[in-house]
Design a binder for these strands. Structure first.
Lengths: 212, 212
DNA sequence: GTCTATACCAAGATAGAC
DNA sequence: GTCTATCTTGGTATAGAC
């Protein structure tokens, strides 16, 4: 694979000892960095060193914190699913004239700003053959499906369609279709059709990646 | 990552010299094997040795044939896109009482039987940050979108919805949701809702993987 | 809590024989 | 056209110091 241009600023060299920090705080920082890198390069395509650099700590420390790279990825998936469900629950509880289904869609699209979150999930979703990752991915996907039916009140068809559009959104982000927005009218039309309201968010993700 | 249980029979040991074969024939065999493995494990998660074993040839020979692993993956993507477009064109040309949109959907779902084809595409789609892979993925995705509009006659909305359901199907396969069909009623309902007609194909993909 | 140093293995690629 | 042997790199994980 050719080297991937990066979004995340890598000027954070891990060489200089990171300032001491409570381990749970540090843990969150590393999880966020890992989410960004995994989202961009996928599970196998990511090295623990890339995560460490993005988080501004040393590579062995990342491994030390999570045990193995796989456990780190699983933690990323769980955090992503928790964040997603929390956003949905918030959107559901919200007082608003906007219909619930739309509010859910907007809540989902808003997660695009959480760098790599939806894409890390997507990478997990397509690795169903891996025993651990697959188990987590299926459980998470079904949790969302059930929530849409039981709590939001969608029919199976509505929930399935909602998820389909979510997967489409994930794909458009993953494929970086927004990079073609200005130069390819078809890409532009597709983006404007597939995500009319939240286009701004996607376009904000254009340009060279910020991860090292 | 824990080791992935396999679908493809690995009894094909490369140790015994493969019988000589015209290079384009061998090329196709390797491409098919590569499609299956890449579909299951993704680009970075696949080794050229796994591909070689699945194809029944030696690892250096795989590299020799395609130059690099990345070129092999790109060849897999191109072959997958060609196969997909050919299936669509065939479904379009077909005489039938079934409406075109349905015929397209069925043609797509039928590709599930081509082991790893749709999943290799999906893995490519989520690697848009990689310069080469991303370029190919975006071009292929847009080619399909344009075909749906220009040749099939879909509106942008219809084409976008069609693609959304395609991505949903890919995801359900990738996540191996069919593995839960018998034991989880929610998984079953979701599968029956998302792919009512072609469920049989998906279920056929259940069970231990056949790739080594 | 965090680092440096390093062991160890896996994997892509090359050389060269048959 | 296809293999065996091997070089080389890069990446996870461990040991141990501060």
């Amino acid at each position: 694979m050719s080297s991937v241009p990066q979004i995340i600023d890598s000027s954070a060299t891990a060489a200089v000892p990171a300032t001491r920090m409570p381990s749970d705080e540090r843990r969150v920082l590393v999880l966020e960095a890992a989410t960004a890198v995994f989202g961009q390069r996928g599970y196998a395509g990511t090295t623990t060193d890339q995560v460490a650099t993005a988080a501004g700590v040393s590579q062995p420390y990342v491994v030390r914190m999570f045990g193995t790279k796989e456990k780190l990825f699983l933690a990323v998936l769980h955090r992503a699913l928790d964040t997603l469900m929390a956003a949905f629950r918030r959107a559901l509880a919200e007082e608003s004239d906007v219909p619930v289904h739309s509010r859910m869609g907007m809540a989902y699209a808003d997660l695009l700003t959480d760098r790599g979150l939806l894409l890390s999930l997507m990478h997990g979703f397509v690795l169903g053959s891996d025993p651990e990752i697959g188990k987590t991915a299926r459980a998470g996907f079904l949790e969302v499906y059930l929530f849409l039916k039981a709590d939001v009140g969608m029919t199976p068809e509505e929930a399935s369609d909602f998820l389909a559009h979510g997967m489409m959104l994930n794909t458009l982000v993953g494929i970086r279709m927004a990079d073609e927005y200005d130069t390819n009218p078809d890409a532009r039309e597709l983006l404007e059709t597939a995500m009319p309201t939240k286009l701004g968010l996607l376009r904000g993700l254009t340009g060279p990646d910020k991860i090292q």
